[in-house]
């Protein structure tokens, strides 16, 4: 039982990760290696407005809305994926 839902969680997570990487690379002028530890503002040079716009594109892909206070907490790519995971799970 637990095993099955874990598999399902994993696949949703993978899908979210793929979307985040797709939207990030669409935004960057040239390919940059991205890991969970990548700091979105400091390492990728995105300003707060660019982050907002990039989050809007992800919101469309996932059919969720990310409240502003949740965006404010995000520093790394890993933070973002975790936040999106939680919001998607809440439906």
């Amino acid at each position: 039982m637990g095993g099955l839902s874990a598999v399902k969680m994993e696949s949703v997570s993978d899908q979210i990760r793929a979307i985040v990487l797709k939207q990030l690379s669409a935004l960057l002028p040239e390919p940059v290696p991205i890991s969970d530890q990548t700091n979105i503002v400091r390492d990728l040079g995105l300003d707060s407005l660019a982050v907002m716009d990039f989050v809007m594109a992800i919101e469309d892909d996932l059919d969720i809305s990310v409240p502003l206070d949740r965006i404010a907490e995000v520093e790394t790519v890993g933070d973002l994926i975790r936040t999106l995971d939680e919001l998607k799970a809440q439906g």
Binding site: M52, V66, L68
Partner: peptide
């Protein structure tokens, strides 16, 4: 004003009633 209060804040695309509708539906 949004930051001073305790409500949950969601933005919709500028002047886009369809995007607003989508976000209202999610809520």
């Amino acid at each position: 004003g949004c930051r001073l209060g305790h409500a949950e804040v969601v933005r919709f695309r500028h002047n886009d009633p369809d995007d607003l509708y989508k976000r209202m539906r999610r809520l």
